Amino acid sequence: MTTFSTHLPVLKYLQRQLDGTLADGDVTHMSYPTAISKLLKFRIVAIAEAMAVIELDADATVHGNQQGTVHGGLLCELADAAIGTAHSTLMHEGESFTSIDLKATFLRPVWQSRLRAHAWAAHRGRTISHYRCDIQREDGKLVASIESAVITLRGDHAKGR
């Protein structure tokens, strides 16, 4: 039996993954789920062009800092994953990207909660795009607000990235 692969754009691949219609042979030029998302148990719960929502069940006994709350670095990683997933929906074959900055504003602590990171493009440029990401606890309260600039790489700059 021969298995054929269908090469999909990132957005279509992630939409099918999310709605459970991804076929065995469906592939895209980027790696999903990412290794860090598997390790930290991030879940994509919504996806659209230049937008992603990722959830995490955060628990200070697993993800804690010395104060006993969820570590701010985990919140930055969650936001970075949501922003990266949102931006990846714009990538074509032969393109890649990387974050060039990230600014986090922490608003309240988390001990144990399902966190939802909602990232969207505030400005989409040809090369540099700006994203916002709000992270909310399951009670709807805003935990952190993150901003990041992402640069799209093309041609030789994208190889091996």
Rank of each mutant, 00 (worst) to 15 (best):
M1A: 10
T2L: 13
S5N: 12
S5I: 12
T6G: 00
P9V: 02
V10S: 02
V10L: 06
L11A: 00
L14K: 00
Q17C: 09
D24W: 03
T28P: 06
M30Q: 13
Y32D: 01
P33L: 09
S37Q: 06
K38R: 15
K38P: 01
K41R: 15
I44H: 00
E49R: 05
E49W: 00
A50R: 11
M51R: 12
A52D: 00
L56C: 13
L56M: 15
D57L: 06
D57S: 04
D57Y: 04
V62M: 08
G64E: 00
N65D: 15
Q66G: 05
V70L: 06
G72L: 05
G73H: 02
G73A: 03
L75E: 00
L78W: 02
D80G: 10
A81Y: 00
I83H: 02
T85H: 07
A86V: 07
T89N: 05
H92Y: 12
E93I: 13
E93Y: 06
G94H: 04
G94Y: 03
E95I: 03
S96A: 12
S96G: 14
F97I: 01
T98E: 09
I100E: 12
D101L: 11
D101H: 13
L102R: 01
A104E: 04
F106D: 03
Q112A: 10
R114G: 09
L115Y: 02
L115H: 06
L115G: 01
R116W: 04
A117T: 05
A122W: 12
H123S: 06
H123M: 04
R126N: 09
I128T: 11
H130K: 08
Y131S: 08
R132P: 03
R132M: 05
D134M: 04
R137P: 03
E138Q: 14
A144H: 11
A144N: 05
A149Y: 10
V150E: 13
R154L: 07
R154A: 06
G155E: 07
G155Q: 04
K159S: 13
R161S: 03
